[in-house]
């Protein structure tokens, strides 16, 4: 636990010292909000503010994974520190868990940035749900994205083109999350893939919480997220074992 906290604390410092990351959590939400606002400005339905907020936020959350956790891992590999971390007595997933959580906590600030822009710059009213709902959803986002991010980190750990592939995944993920169009309009096989993405359930959940009377405990999205979190949790354990073997037996850690 102490390792996780130290890792988390120092990751805050490292990420914030990187201007690209500051861009991702502050400037990018502003830019995405502006872009989507202009694209959708003819859209004549009442809750356009909420619609913008949900979509921009989820896009940013994904970007934070792409630009932070996974590229951090590639950077660590290049800097050679991955070896020192791996060869320490602490389990690898605790060390990187701390880093991923730190990046996500920072990334969740982009929600606030989007909210402020939509509410005050574009003057589109967003009625926030009650504080308990917000806190519950915040933690749901955090744990589901932490497990997803760690799972992907393992998946791409030994891939020389990790950054390439996660960049390539950006727009497919947006599509499969229901940002541009309803998932029901997608072919059935793509719908199945979208069920495996926390972003799909998060988009659904965020849309629901703006309905003040909605009880999130009855939301299938909450349970979908919890089940996915558990699945990715198991995935992390399995991947951890596979990766350890790959590193130790195939000696691939320092290949980059």
């Amino acid at each position: 636990m102490r390792v996780l906290l130290t890792s988390l604390r120092l990751q805050f410092k490292q990420s914030l010292s990187r201007s690209t990351y500051r861009f991702v959590i502050i400037i990018q939400p502003i830019l995405n909000t502006i872009l989507l606002y202009f694209i959708l400005s003819n859209k004549n339905f009442v809750n356009v503010g909420e619609y913008l907020f949900v979509n921009v936020s989820v896009m940013n959350l994904w970007s934070s994974i792409v630009f932070s956790s996974l590229s951090d891992l590639t950077r660590e590999k290049r800097m050679g520190v991955l070896g020192s971390n791996f060869a320490s007595p602490v389990k690898f997933q605790w060390i990187y868990g701390g880093k991923v959580i730190a990046n996500l906590i920072l990334a969740l600030w982009s929600f606030a940035v989007s909210y402020l822009i939509i509410q005050y710059v574009f003057d589109l009213n967003i009625v926030l749900p009650n504080v308990y709902t917000l806190i519950t959803v915040y933690f749901l986002l955090l744990i589901s994205f932490t497990t997803l991010s760690l799972f992907l980190s393992y998946f791409f750990l030994l891939n020389r083109q990790a950054i390439f592939w996660i960049n390539v995944l950006e727009y497919p993920i947006y599509l499969l999350s229901g940002i541009a169009t309803s998932i029901q309009k997608l072919p059935w096989f793509l719908q199945i893939i979208s069920w495996l993405l926390p972003t799909k359930w998060i988009v659904g959940l965020l849309h629901q919480i703006f309905n003040a009377k909605y009880n999130i405990l009855t939301s299938a999205n909450v349970y979908g997220l919890l089940i996915l979190t558990a699945l990715y949790g198991i995935g992390i354990i399995v991947m951890n074992n596979i990766m350890e073997r790959k590193i130790l037996v195939e000696g691939q850690l320092e290949v980059y």
Partner: peptide, 26 residues
């Protein structure tokens, strides 16, 4: 990966924006 980067990824990006833009229907 070259084809994905040069053709598939831009195509998916195009599909994403086209779907988004077409929400306006005009």
């Amino acid at each position: 990966s070259f084809m994905v980067y040069k053709i598939v990824q831009p195509m998916i990006q195009v599909i994403f924006f086209v779907l988004l833009i077409s929400k306006n229907g005009d």
